[in-house]
Design a binder for these strands. Structure first.
Lengths: 197, 197
DNA sequence: TTCGTCATGTAATGGGTTACATGATTAC
DNA sequence: GTAATCATGTAACCCATTACATGACGAA
């Protein structure tokens, strides 16, 4: 999870740990702010695994720059080739466990870097899960509605509506994906008549 | 979390571990299905702490009942007096950390057993958190909207709507609570001149 | 010169999961 | 009698958090 998020953010541009964390909570609103206690060790592990390396900014710019005294400055990381591979691997990989809430959010956030097919697969996976859950809630609600107290009922119904709402959202997204993906066969029916790209 | 959920469910009626788990995922749709690997050890700890004890069903009913051979049958737990205290304690206790999602759900599920004041406090706490989050998202969205890719934008906006929706829900709930709770001071200012409420 | 914030890190701990091992009960 | 499922439990691990320690740098 953290790993995927890191790879994804670093895919954009090299960053050091501290800023990475800011991005995690702010830039992508989905992620929670992982603590440094998990962030830094993870960065180290990933570096050791060969997915990241330190970025010296090409050693360019001011050679005798202001105070890089004694070291202990920022440590800027960037993706290695293996890191990029690993990123794609993680994006595509998806045991059904993987669609649970947070993970889905992270995957979704990097859809821009994801294969169209994988996107649809992930969206559909998520939707199935939610539909299962929806049916579960509906069933128990139908069976136990009368026995439930006011609050439990409120909670269930609110939950149910949330799920229904998200299912609709996903359905729209899936349709959009399908429309924008060129259907495998049927290659561009009419090469003429096209204005702007 | 698990602890509170267990205390809450056991508050209703004595249960054994296995059934407890079914209830966790089904009866209260809010909870996820904690694994036995966490459930049973937790039950043991809680028993050792004196919050639970085994329930022998009052030794009543059929004395030579069908097959309670050798033992290793169900272990039915019920709350002790300390357990009930502990439950109330956990319900009321709420460092602001505590309003995060899951915890809120569990607290809410037991609102029937919770003090009216505590209920309002929890609802308002949750709402503030969500409002903070909402503002955060709105701000970053306003600042970075143009730089965001299609998917990130979708995600943010969907998230924002979810939050807004929940805030409205909470506001309604709070109002309902307030109406049903007799206002502390101000004992009916003017018994006359009031048509409909 | 001191305070806030940027910046990196470690150690202890927490709260859960997975995988595994085992036995009892019920339905076929 | 055997398979499914009810029922209890342990051990190893995972992924994160908290609390702590350290230090650089800019602004008041």
């Amino acid at each position: 999870m953290l790993e995927l998020a890191i790879l994804g953010l670093l895919h954009g541009s090299p960053l050091h740990g501290y800023e990475l964390r800011q991005r995690l909570k702010a830039t992508l609103g989905t992620f929670r702010a992982f603590s440094y206690g998990s962030l830094y060790p993870t960065l180290r592990r990933m570096k050791e695994a060969g997915w990241l390396c330190e970025d010296d900014g090409n050693a360019e710019v001011v050679a005798g720059a202001p105070a890089l005294t004694g070291r202990r400055g920022k440590v800027v990381y960037k993706l290695t080739a293996e890191g990029k591979e690993r990123f794609q691997e993680l994006l595509a990989e998806a045991g059904p466990t993987s669609w649970e809430d947070e993970t889905f959010g992270v995957h979704f956030a990097f859809f821009g870097q994801t294969d169209p097919e994988v996107r649809v697969r992930i969206l559909e996976g998520r939707r199935s899960r939610l539909e299962e859950r929806r049916e579960g809630v509906r069933t128990t609600l139908a069976r136990t509605r009368s026995r439930l107290d006011r609050y439990t009922l409120q909670l269930q119904e609110h939950g149910l509506e949330s799920v229904e709402r998200e299912v609709r959202w996903l359905t729209e997204l899936i349709e959009t994906e399908r429309r924008s993906t060129v259907p495998p066969a049927v290659p561009t029916p009419n090469p003429e008549e096209r204005g702007a790209p």
